[in-house]
Design a protein around this nucleic acid. Structure first.
Lengths: 145, 145
DNA sequence: ATGATATTGAGAATCAGTCTCAATTATATA
DNA sequence: TATATAATTGAGACTGATTCTCAATATCAT
């Protein structure tokens, strides 16, 4: 049986006249099962380990599709590498990113969000999305100094 | 006569056993005079228009140097392009970035900064720097829709 | 001025991401 | 189910940004 996210994804594809392909399902699956942020290269490598072969281009194309549909979000590590996470049944949150181990902690704060909106309004700026990342050393990496 | 930032920069170089070269001074100068965020390519192009020829590698090397020393900050536009600004006599601030025209507005808010610190403390995360960018449409670009 | 050392620019190399295009696959409809 | 149409695919060429390599050059302490 299909999981809810797969259903929702297929609805999106149908509504746009796009096709439900094995590759698209595999990539969504991979994101759903990942316990952490994954890079496009992770997806490419791991999916090719198994049966299917899947091109790099398809990985990027599908990630953009998911991102634009609001089903995935990306973050960027301190060295510039991009990584993705799915957004199904996950409320909005921002990240603390360890500069040593690239570990990611999540946080969210209603007051910050509210102030952001007020600031935007004051500048007549229409916010579409934001990125709030705190870079530093996580508990573990901080100990080792 | 030398501006204060140049003095401070040369002190840094001396303290690290690095040399004060024409290229490094030119790049700092360029950043100090720029009225907006500039890309490495801007710097490369404009400095080569004049007398000096300066390599791309040197532009990147010097920007990293300035960034690590805390004399420059970078932001990233919606399409991923990087741009730099100097930080001399400029208090900390964050950015609103227009997804249409790449225009940048600055904001800063003490309450947000305070909450960030509290959150970090709660997670035993040692914050080093942060990036808080709101992407959207500026007043001008919003009108045109 | 000299010598030790850091820095430089040119161009090769790398890397992530995009593009092109012929072959393949999904889907609507007969 | 077979067929027609249009979207999708993977391979590999391409791009643009950044880094690397290295011989030539510039800085600086002496």
């Amino acid at each position: 049986m299909k999981s809810e996210p797969h259903k929702v994804f297929e609805q999106l594809l149908n509504s746009k006249g796009l096709k439900v392909t094995k590759q698209r399902k595999d990539i969504l699956d991979y994101l759903l099962k990942a316990r952490k942020h994954v890079t496009p290269e992770d997806i490419y490598r791991d999916l090719n380990k198994k049966d299917a072969n899947i091109g790099r281009a398809t990985v990027f194309r599908t990630l953009h599709l998911l991102e634009n549909a609001g089903f995935a979000d990306k973050i960027q590590f301190a060295d510039g590498r991009l990584a993705y996470e799915h957004k199904f049944a996950r409320p909005h949150h921002d990240h603390m990113i360890c500069v040593e181990c690239s570990g990611v902690l999540e946080f969210s704060n209603a007051t910050i969000e509210k102030i952001q909106d007020e600031i935007s309004k004051k500048f007549l700026f229409k916010p579409l999305w934001h990125r709030h990342e705190i870079f530093g050393r996580c508990k573990k990496c901080n100990k080792m100094d």
